[in-house]
Nucleic acid binder design. Structure first.
Lengths: 233, 233
DNA sequence: CGTAGTAATCTCACTTCTGCGAAAACCTTA
DNA sequence: TAAGGTTTTCGCAGAAGTGAGATTACTACG
């Protein structure tokens, strides 16, 4: 920005700023899913990504956090320690028929354990699986409003890029230690079978983790070594 | 966003939106550089990235384009065919002492040939080389205002990520055909010597280019094969 | 207790990648 | 026109990565 006298700010009309968030998780079935909520107001009943308008001098991350709390009943402490990630600013002035709105799209990853109880309790919430790069809605609605399908596509793309190289950087897995299989379920959900090579996966990831002396046993098959995140990831 | 009655837009105060752009180039000396301009107004004389406030219903890319035209005298046709790339939204409400401003940072790559004549003509412009991930300013000023150093760091990081894999995706090189050495100068400028392996570079890039039957000769040394961008890059 | 089933890990041949030095092809200058 | 300098390209041996099958170590069930 250029140096300007302070009243210059008032010279220009200003857009409303919205935040939208694709909360992504890996379901118990091992599928990548996104949190949707049923809208209220004039377009009640349709599914959409959570989002709302930015309040005065509010930070984007805080707006995201409050949206999830207010609209989805997700307690704030379910989000602590997790930072929403900016994806894109949608700036088409005709995107929103209510007026001139810029929308900042975000990605937030949450473990399914945090989402499941909340979704079970609120009928206005759903976790839609993502197939072929778009969300499969719970009923006959085909698309999300305001081109939110593109948000999901961008979120998925971002995740794919990260998960090719790094072991669960967004922490779908919350536990301190985990087996390579557990990690594999997450990566498989993100990457899909076309980008999935189990051998390469195990080798690349185990190199980036610290092995613990413990094992996980109890299930069928050979016990699996438990790994821990390496210090700086 | 949730469905809302249309007057809801007016209920909230709205922030000013600024766009800032790191115009990056590779200088004749083979260094990565960024375009700076001397500010006017109350902080006249200090160097900063070009930027201004978004006008009513203006698209971000258009605001960038006009900023460069109005503030730096870059003719619009120097930018045609090139899309600024969003990097980040800076949302700290205290970032700008003039008020509540969100700033959308962008990266735009331009070939040095387009910048050189304009910079030579305008004394308020400079191309600052980037070393150790921050711009080396032309005079005693140490830092850019409003944390614009972070914009440069993000821009550089983004470029590094792309240029490890793909031959000049942002098109520092504008000519139709080029030799691997000419391409190498650009990649070296972006990646720095620590990420530079000439053999790997040649092999990885030549595979992604189409060889032409022409050669470039005239300089000292063996003539170099001229390559062309492959269709979809 | 033995057998079947399952999951994790190891082994090995094969392919690809990497760094380096040698060779090729040109320009300049004497 | 021959020698020297420069730049590009090729060739090779060693390193690293890949995919598939064999092996190991468990649980479940009769």
């Amino acid at each position: 920005m250029t140096g300007s006298s302070s009243f210059e700010l008032d010279k220009f009309p200003r857009p409303s700023i919205a935040v939208d968030v694709a909360v992504m998780t890996v379901t118990a079935a091992g599928e990548l899913g996104v949190l949707l909520h049923r809208r209220t107001g004039d377009k009640a009943g349709t599914w959409a990504l959570p989002g709302r308008f930015l309040r005065e001098r509010e930070r984007l991350a805080v707006a995201i956090e409050r949206t999830l709390e207010e609209k989805c009943g997700l307690p704030a402490r379910d989000i602590t320690g997790r930072a929403p990630r900016q994806l894109h600013v949608f700036d088409d002035p005709d995107r929103d028929d209510r007026g001139w709105v810029l929308s900042v799209a975000h990605l937030l990853v949450l473990p399914i354990e945090r989402l499941d109880p909340v979704v079970a309790e609120h009928p206005g919430l759903a976790i839609a699986p993502i197939r072929n790069d778009h969300a499969v809605l719970p009923d006959t609605q085909k698309q999300l409003p305001y081109g939110q399908d593109e948000i999901i596509a961008r979120a998925h793309e971002e995740l794919r890029r990260e998960y090719l190289e790094t072991p669960d950087p967004e922490r779908f897995l919350e536990t301190d230690t985990f087996t390579l299989s557990e990690l594999g379920v997450v990566h498989f959900a993100v990457l899909g079978k076309e980008n999935w090579a189990i051998d390469t996966f195990r080798r690349k990831m185990s190199r980036q983790l610290r092995e613990t002396s413990a094992e996980k046993r109890g299930g069928p098959g050979r016990p699996a070594a438990l790994f821990r995140r390496s210090r700086h990831s």
